Simulated assay, not measured.
Amino acid sequence: MQSIDNGRTIFQESFGKVEIIIPYKKNWFTILFLIVWLGIWVSAELAAVAWVINGERDLTLVFSLCWLAGWTIGGLSAIRTLVWMGIGKEIITLEQGVITIRRKGLLLAKAKAYYLNEAKHFQVLHPDTEPDNKLGRLQNPFEAYNAGMIRFDYGMETVKFAENIHEAEAEYILAKLKDKKLLTDKNFTYEY
């Protein structure tokens, strides 16, 4: 018999402040793959650095430096992804009329804050009808700045959060925020 999934969302409440914490769902195959790949990456990186330092000074040096720069960026991207998958969590804070979305553990990401009275049309993404988000999951860590199962309009921008959770859990989050009167009917309407 299938066990019941009660979700990963953690609610913390204190004096007019609600914090929603969503730990990143670990994909162990990808984590193990990245660890192995990074082992190979480090070996190639060190060999390339040694070759550039000890190599001849001709046109191959220019190619080697360009290759090394690209290889370094690729490795740093893999490290960023690995850290996010290993310890990442999304923290959504609602207090004093502001919603703040922070990706803790996502290197080089900074928190973004939005006034709730300007946030409209809160809704759950339905992955089967969303061409840009078929699985409702993070495909690329650089998309994490605006990925998730819940979205709202903020002026001419669409903001997404609550990444890598199921629709039912996203519906639960919105219902709970509405029950606590942190989101009102005005936040769910589509008017400009």
Rank of each mutant, 00 (worst) to 15 (best):
S3M: 11
I4H: 04
N6C: 07
N6G: 06
T9M: 10
I10G: 04
F11Y: 15
I20Q: 00
P23H: 09
Y24A: 07
Y24E: 02
K25N: 03
N27L: 01
N27V: 09
W28R: 15
T30I: 09
T30K: 06
I31Y: 05
F33S: 08
F33V: 10
W37F: 15
L38E: 13
I40M: 14
I40P: 01
W41N: 07
V42G: 03
A48L: 13
A48S: 14
A48C: 08
A50M: 15
A50E: 14
V52W: 15
V52L: 15
V52E: 10
V52P: 01
I53A: 08
I53K: 12
G55D: 06
T60D: 03
L68K: 02
G70P: 05
I73A: 14
A78F: 05
T81C: 06
G86C: 10
I87Y: 01
K89S: 03
I92V: 15
L94C: 10
G97E: 10
G97C: 11
G97R: 09
K104G: 01
G105F: 00
G105R: 01
L107I: 13
L108E: 00
L108F: 05
K110R: 12
K112G: 01
K112H: 01
N117E: 14
K120H: 13
F122K: 00
H126G: 08
H126W: 05
P127H: 09
E130Q: 11
P131T: 07
P131Q: 02
D132A: 12
N133S: 14
R137D: 04
R137P: 00
P141K: 02
P141C: 12
N146E: 07
A147Q: 08
G148Y: 03
M149K: 04
M149R: 06
M149T: 02
R151Y: 12
D153P: 01
D153Y: 02
G155V: 01
E157I: 05
E157R: 05
E157V: 00
I165D: 00
I165T: 10
E167S: 05
I173G: 00
L174E: 05
K178M: 04
D179K: 04
K180W: 10
K181F: 05
T184A: 12
D185S: 11
D185M: 08
D185I: 11
K186N: 02
T189Q: 07
Y192P: 06
